[in-house]
Amino acid sequence: MNNDTPAAILKRNLWTDNPIFVQILGICSTLAVTNNLTNTLIMTLAVTIVTGLSSTTVSLIKGLIPRKVRMIVQTLIIAFYVILVDIVLRAYIPEISKALGPYVGLIITNCIIMGRAEAFAQSNPPVMALWDGLTSGVGYMAVLVIIATIRELLGAGTLMGYQVLGDGFTTWTIMVMPPSAFFLLGSFIWAAKSIMIKKEAS
């Protein structure tokens, strides 16, 4: 994959090979945090930063990592950055840290990060790996933010905590609960795939 230009990587991670609706990775967090837009933004930002940095680090020391312990080292690097993010959140933005609770720790298990480290960073130079990690994170962020916007708007009538829909609006409790993320994500994948197929056909 030596013909990877930054633009091609961007397009791939945002659209043609999007981690959420094409690779179907990182679904657990999609279901969990998307009932609130603020939490979603912070969480996806954290994932983006962690993916970028861990991919860069893996790429930097890829020549030194023995194949046998490759995955262990990758996990170690990812865990390292996630713990750093957790500490920084706790020290400097305690409200968000409180709201996200256990989900920050769970970023470690987000398959997107490991996936990028294994599929891209292992065989590409650091700057490209950073770009690939960041754009993958943004691809993840874009989908989650769309789902979170719909869920918070219909589920609570608010956006980022501000009342948007009037008092007369009956909130959809289902939108706050995990199943709605399944429905929305399913619809999203359906829509995105239909557009892709149409494009290919024409």
Partner: peptide, 29 residues
Amino acid sequence: KESFFYVVIFTFIVAFIFVFIISLVNNAT
């Protein structure tokens, strides 16, 4: 690179460095 000693030493050093940084940051905050 694939020898037993290299793997053990490499893993140890990498783990040591990262854990060391984390404990520094943890202490600082």
